[in-house]
C-alpha cells in the first residue's frame, strides 16, 4: 500500500461520509442524483463478490463491506426515508444508456471470460461513468450546494489518486492493468470540468453555479 493508494481510499471514504452526513443533517437529498447512487451500488455489488472467494486483508474486507453497505444506505435515504426531498424531476438521465453498453463492453473486453471476472470488468467500466446522472443533474439545475461540491470533489480525487498509484506500482512493482487504467482515466476526465469550477468558485467561497 503506497501513499497515493491510501489517499485515494481516504478520499473515497470521505466522499461517502460527506454525502451521508449532508443527507442526514439537512434531512434532505435535494440535488443528489438517486440514479448515480443506484449505479454505484451496482458497481460495488458486482466488484466485491470476491469477498466470498478470496481474503486479502482486514482493511480490504472492511472497506469493501463499508462501500457496499453505505451505497445501499444512501439509496434507502434517497428513495425511502427522505423521498419527499428527492429531486426526481431533475434526475432524468437514463441509466440503461450506461448499463447496457457497459455490459456489452465487459463481455467483449475483459481479462478472462469467467463470471466473476466479467462482473469485475463490468463494475470497473460502470464506475467510470456512474457519476454522469449526477453531473447531468448539476448541469440541468445549473448549480450545486457547496456540500455537494465537496462530495463530488472528494469522489473525483479518489480515482485521480488511484491513477498516480498505478503509475507508482508500474515503476516500483511492475504491475499494471490496462482495463483499470483506461477506465480510471475516463472517470477522472469526466470530473475535469467540475474540478475547474470547484477550484475557481467553491474554494473561493462561492456556490457552484454554471453560466446560463
Amino acid at each position: 500500500m503506497n501513499v497515493f493508494r491510501l489517499s485515494g481510499d481516504v478520499s473515497h471514504l470521505l466522499a461517502i461520509l460527506i454525502l451521508l452526513m449532508k443527507i442526514w443533517k439537512t434531512r434532505s437529498c435535494a440535488g443528489i442524483s438517486g440514479k448515480s447512487q443506484i449505479l454505484f451500488a451496482l458497481v460495488y455489488t458486482t466488484r466485491y463478490l470476491d469477498l466470498f472467494t478470496s481474503f486479502i486483508s482486514p482493511y480490504n474486507t472492511a472497506m469493501k463491506v463499508f462501500f457496499i453497505a453505505s451505497s445501499y444506505a444512501t439509496i434507502y435515504l434517497i428513495y425511502l426515508k427522505f423521498k419527499a426531498t428527492y429531486d426526481r424531476n431533475h434526475d432524468t438521465f437514463r441509466m440503461e444508456f450506461l448499463v447496457l453498453p457497459v455490459l456489452v463492453l465487459a463481455f467483449v473486453v475483459n481479462h478472462d471470460f469467467t463470471p466473476l471476472e466479467i462482473l469485475w470488468t463490468f463494475s470497473i467500466y460502470l464506475e467510470s461513468v456512474a457519476i454522469l446522472p449526477q453531473l447531468f443533474m448539476v448541469s440541468k439545475t445549473g448549480q450545486a450546494e457547496t456540500i455537494t461540491s465537496h462530495y463530488l470533489f472528494a469522489l473525483g480525487m479518489y480515482r485521480a489518486l488511484y491513477i498516480v498509484n498505478w503509475v507508482y506500482r508500474y515503476y516500483f512493482e511492475g504491475f499494471y492493468d490496462l482495463i483499470a487504467i483506461i477506465a480510471g482515466v475516463v472517470q477522472t476526465v469526466l470530473y475535469c470540468d467540475f474540478f475547474y469550477l470547484y477550484v475557481t468558485k467553491v474554494l473561493k467561497g462561492k456556490q457552484l453555479t454554471l453560466p446560463a
Binding site: D9, S54, I56, N60, H111, D112, W166, R169, F175
Partner: peptide, 10 residues
C-alpha cells in the same frame, strides 16, 4: 490471469 497483482485494490 490478466490482472497483474492488482486484486488487492478496491
Amino acid at each position: 490471469d490478466g490482472r497483474n497483482g492488482l486484486k488487492d485494490e478496491l
